[in-house]
Amino acid sequence: MNLLNPSYKIVAVVLLAYTLFYGLKTPLAPSVYKVQSSINADAVVLDIELYNLNAHNSTIDLYLEDDGDKWQAKSIAILDATHVQAVFEKQARTNRTQNLFLTYQSANLGGKNSFLNAIQVPMAYLQNENQIATAIEKSTEWHEGMQVFPFREQLYETIRNLFFHVPMWFVMLFLSAISLYYSISYLKNPSVRKDMIASQAIKVAVLFGALGLVTGSIWARFTWGSFWVSQDVKLNGAAISMLLYLAYLWLRSATKDDLSRAKLSAVYNIFAFTLMMVFMMILPRMLDSLHPGNGGNPAFSKYDLDSSLRGVFYPAVLGWILLAIWILEIRIRLCKIKPSAKSIYGK
C-alpha cells in the first residue's frame, strides 16, 4: 500500500465521522426501565417507569401474560411523561414468572410516522408482600422502521462505548501484529527501516492500548461497579501486555548501541507479542472473565439480533484502524527526517 496516497485518510475521516454521528445520535430503543408492583385487597398495581418513550404522546396498552392466560390492564393512569400506573385484576397474581407486554403507538419517536411496537418484560413473580421491586432480567423489543440501539439492562446508554472501547484493542492488536511482522523480518534480514517501523508501531499501539484501558475503565465503573475488577483475567492480561510493551520501549531507550538495540528489541517484541496473545486471547477464554464472549458469557453478536450495532461497529473498527495507520505514517516520516533535521539545525 502506498502510504502517501491520501485516499485512505479521507476514508478514515468519513468513517470516524459516521461513527461519531450515528454512534452517539441514534437513540436507544424505547423500553421499560423499572417496574414496581404493589398488591391491594382487590387489585395488582404496577408502577412502570418508561425509557425513551413519552407517555403523553403515545397510546399505551398493557397486559400480563402467563402460560397463555392474558389479563388486560383495567385502567392505565399517566402520572407524568415517563411514569405510568396500571391496575390489574387480583386474579393476575400467580406464583409463576409472568411477562408484561407493553404495546405502544407513538408519534414522537422515529420522526415522521407512528409505529405500533411491543415490549416484553419478564418479571419475577408478584408476591404477597406490598411494594416489591420487580427484577427485570431482560426485555425484548420489536421495532419496525426505527433506527435504534437495543436497550440492555446494566448497559443502557453505555452500549455506544462498543464503538470506542473495542476498536481500541483491535487497533492495538493490529499494530502490534505489524510490529511483529517487521521484527521477524528484521531478524531474518536486518535493515534500519524495519526496526524503525517496528518500534513506531509499538509506540502507536501503546497509545491505543492506553485509550482502550481508559474507555474500558469508565465502562466498567458504570456496568460492573468499579474502575478495575481485579479478578478479571482479561483486564489483568491487558495490563500485563501494556507493561510488556512499556518494558519494550524501556529496553530501546536503555540500549545505547543502535545495532544491538534493534536486535534485542526485535527479539523482545516477538516474546511480548506471543505472551500478549496468550493473556488476551487464550486465557480469558479458558478462565472466568466478565467480558462478553469469555468465560462462558455470550458474545455481543448474540445480543444485537437487529444488527443495528453492527452497522456502526464495523465502520468504526475500520475507521480507527485507518486512523492508526495514518498516525503511524506520520511518525515514520518524522523519524525519517529527524537525522537530516539534526544535521541542519544541530539539535
Binding site: 500485563i240 518494558a247 536503555a254 545505547k256 534485542l264 523482545y268 493473556f279
Partner: peptide, 29 residues
C-alpha cells in the same frame, strides 16, 4: 531469557528486574 538480553549491555544490572517482571507476572499469579 531476559538476563541473556541484558548480558549484551554495559549497564545490565537492572535489565532482568525491569524486563523480566512483566513476563513473569501471570506465571507468578
Amino acid at each position: 531469557f531476559v538476563a541473556s538480553i541484558g548480558a549484551q549491555q554495559a549497564s545490565a544490572s537492572s535489565f532482568s528486574a525491569i524486563l523480566g517482571l512483566p513476563i513473569v507476572l501471570p506465571l507468578l499469579s
